[in-house]
Design a protein around this nucleic acid. Sequence first.
DNA 1: CAAACCACTTGATCCAGCTCAATCATTTCT
DNA 2: AGAAATGATTGAGCTGGATCAAGTGGTTTG
Lengths: 262, 262
Amino acid sequence: MLIYPDWSGILTNRKVITFENIKVACKNCSLGTLCLPMGLDPDDVERLDGIVKRGRPYHRGDHLFREADDFQSLKVITSGSIKTYTPNEDGSEQVLGFHLPGELIGLDAIQNDQHTCSAIALETTAVCDIPFDQLESLSISIPSLQRQIYRLLSREIGHETEMLTLLGKKSAEERLATFLLSFSDRFKQRGFSASDFFLSMSRHEIGNYLGLAVETISRLFTRFQDEGLLQVERKHVQLLNIPRLQEIVQGGQGEKPQQRQI
Amino acid sequence: MLIYPDWSGILTNRKVITFENIKVACKNCSLGTLCLPMGLDPDDVERLDGIVKRGRPYHRGDHLFREADDFQSLKVITSGSIKTYTPNEDGSEQVLGFHLPGELIGLDAIQNDQHTCSAIALETTAVCDIPFDQLESLSISIPSLQRQIYRLLSREIGHETEMLTLLGKKSAEERLATFLLSFSDRFKQRGFSASDFFLSMSRHEIGNYLGLAVETISRLFTRFQDEGLLQVERKHVQLLNIPRLQEIVQGGQGEKPQQRQI
DNA sequence: CAAACCACTTGATCCAGCTCAATCATTTCT
DNA sequence: AGAAATGATTGAGCTGGATCAAGTGGTTTG
């Protein structure tokens, strides 16, 4: 599924090639408009290319990094998908996000040069590695890159802010609808169908992410299907009534304005 | 309460002084170790001083900015306290945070040069204004400042991540204990008592922030008081058993590890 | 190809926290 | 000072979603 790099040359045994050295060309990458180089001029993208590395692809269940690992580089997903989560003291975890191609992960680790969450591949996944110290140096000499990094960090804050509202105020129904439409939008942005896609994560992980029990997720899928909003079979989802889902996200039917505070 | 600037000279009418022009000296500020200049060397702090402005103080209920306002500058609180929140379509709101002296607000606005939340003073509050375009320029010539901004943005992401776990997984009791200990720590960092302080926000706002009803907050305060964990009267809180509150934050009594996923 | 396992679904029951409602206390307004 | 509005507390009852339990189908393993 999704955009896929061509590993054929690499996987033949003509020659041993260290993955570390594979040259990546942001300028040819289809993710250009979503990814870090977005809005940079061609010369600067060239310089960025100089520090970006592509590593070996990850398989389902492989970790990109774990909480408390030293922070070396930001990762940009180029294909596949990633789950980030924080392991809690007890064996449980909080899922923080699901990440698609073009998205940057590891931003939380800049603070202390140490990862504060873990990242695991949900399917076969390729990433670009951007060593952060080099990115930092480069951003001193490329103001538009510096600006871009500020914006990306700020965007991440904005995303998390939206999640706070989701978890603080929304009903189970609203949460799942929001979740589905988020994927719909993101797939669309990436040139895929907005209404027919595969979710790479389990019901359990969806529930964890949305602050709901697995059973609730399962029941909601059934309910949405019964109401003709979607068709779901295992990980395959087809949205049949996006406008109605959008209504649900807006607060479903009966609003109730809250009294002001202060 | 808290650190207070001396306005006496300004408020006399010897001379009209525009507040915009008041020179701020980060190097003399008691918040140095908490605030933006943290870790910069003295020369660089001097240059930062060149762009920092102090405006007129805000009174309870005044807005520092509102959602959708153009983004001009980051704000650092120097005294008082601020609530940030996102107004929802209907009249309700989601409280995003409560901010104390030394804390930076407006970081979410960098993304689109537009504020995505509103900020309102909970009491008389003074702030420093840091015009962001100037900060950005300055950070190109001061690498350690650039680094500091990256870290602050990353730290904000980390905070919000913790809130996601709070809202996604914790019980009402755990949420309020976390909330109280967060203030305890932050007051302590600022040189105030860790166990005796005033909360400047209403029960309603606490509830909104923690994803709980007002009544739940009220009942929990009563319960905690009955259990001897704290003494509360209106906005005045005295923590009597911080270790026990810490236990509650850790998950109270009976843990229950969750099954792994994947 | 069976056996074991796992993800998911569905049903039944339970309960933490919400909602509704009444009372008080405090602040603000006239 | 008295009235009105706002904020906080407390009680009673309700409910959305959790938990517990059982069953189903898909997938992996030996």
